[in-house]
Write a protein that binds this DNA or RNA. Sequence first.
DNA 1: CATGGGATTGACT
DNA 2: GTCAATCCCATGC
Length: 188
Amino acid sequence: MSALPRAFYDRPVLDVAPELLGCVLAHGHTSGVIVETEAYHFTEPACHAFVGVTPRTAVLHGPPGTAYVYRSYGIHALFNAVCEPAGVAAAVLIRALEPLDGIPEMIARRGLTREEDLCSGPGKLTQALGIELHLNGGDLRTGPVRILAGEPRRYVAGPRIGITKATELPWRFSVAGSRFVSRPWPRP
DNA sequence: CATGGGATTGACT
DNA sequence: GTCAATCCCATGC
């Protein structure tokens, strides 16, 4: 499997977010298939880059295909892939994985054994893969954290989770029928 | 320099 | 269903 090229990320974030479903996020000996994503764009207030360029959002304004990792609620590291050309701040939050490689290592880090619970949330998957803040800004093709090409998946879209602003935008995407998503979808 | 608010999770009523 | 944990950083004085 090969790493996604920079050009994959150098596009509108609403195109990239659903196409990341089915691709593989890898760190060290652990990896998983991406089954849930959310898009964020500087033009809407839920995006950290809405406030402009600050030390925190510098990576978001940088070149596409890099990792944006930040601490949430003082406890969890959340992982994003930076998209769109440098100067256009946007990112895809990876919200859930289907565990692939290194499952015993994930179980040890998480202290749980059910595969559905290892990576079914943005804070859970970073813990399972050992992704921490120092990986912020890394190149997703050549760095310690990589995203590898995969097969396109059928998906569903809906509102983003856990935010208080711009909640009306249907910018959450997940693989149709996956049991590894962070939150279930309402009945069709 | 002090303050306040989270792109969450897990434990508990 | 409710709620605390915990820390980076944006904002305002």
